[in-house]
Design a protein around this nucleic acid. Sequence first.
DNA 1: GCCGAGGTTGACGTTAACGTAAAGTGCTTG
DNA 2: CAAGCACTTTACGTTAACGTCAACCTCGGC
Lengths: 147, 147
Amino acid sequence: MTQTPSTPLSATEKAGPLPRQRRTYSIGELARMFEVTTRTIRFYEQEGLLAPERRGQTRIYDEKDRVRLKLTLRGKRLGFSLAEIREVVMMYDAMPDGNRRQLRRLIEILTDKRRNMERQLEDIRLMQLELDDVERRARDVLEGLGD
Amino acid sequence: MTQTPSTPLSATEKAGPLPRQRRTYSIGELARMFEVTTRTIRFYEQEGLLAPERRGQTRIYDEKDRVRLKLTLRGKRLGFSLAEIREVVMMYDAMPDGNRRQLRRLIEILTDKRRNMERQLEDIRLMQLELDDVERRARDVLEGLGD
DNA sequence: GCCGAGGTTGACGTTAACGTAAAGTGCTTG
DNA sequence: CAAGCACTTTACGTTAACGTCAACCTCGGC
């Protein structure tokens, strides 16, 4: 009865009028799709980031799982730990019936992540300048060697 | 043995009117300055990222070292490994007398890093959208609870 | 019936990036 | 001169995020 409408985390999903096919994926498919190993995917499940269904022993992943994996990997590329990612993900899941304190906590976390992003943006900007500089010098030296 | 002429490593040494003084730093100063531990700084040296001078046993860091530490930490925040950072740093140092092959290799690495940055920029953009979305929903639920 | 391709659960191994504790050195301050 | 810092080396410990076996199941095809 507590069937949550199960809307996956998504700001970028085009909710077309198409009858959404209930596509599913095997662990191997997902692995190839995102260029990770199956070990990684199982590990993420063990860490509470995924919860695929089972047909017998075999894991079957649906669209929601796929999106979650995608977001997890994106978070990782941005330097978040699995623990951090899990925190947000779990709070998101618990949101519908979350109490005020939890929700405020979630917003607090999000604000923090956002600050993190801002800093990274600045870091990237500065790093790009450094790279430009180093590359320019390298090219100068190359030229000096008589290209 | 080596009698050093009692220079008290004063931070505010009035040697001249020039603003560009040959300032030096102790390991503790740098640690506080960047909010890392001295262990971290020594570790970076061990990994070939820093090479401070010594007065007896004690490490003395100059402006160049400080900048390098700053860049290292920035690289870390962007998810580069110490090995990667070292690669760039060492090649940069060896640049003046670097041969063509090395220089091309350096430029290749830089191009790679740059691609990395581009991807991170995109990741950040997407992640910000996600965060916006999650936060908006959280606020909606909060409001629904009768704020 | 057997085989290979994929899937499963342990369980132990590995690597990066430090943390932490022990034991010593050197300066300066009461 | 004793105490107290800040610094040093050595060395073992720790954590996250997987990698790497081993030993097993299971299903479609020949």
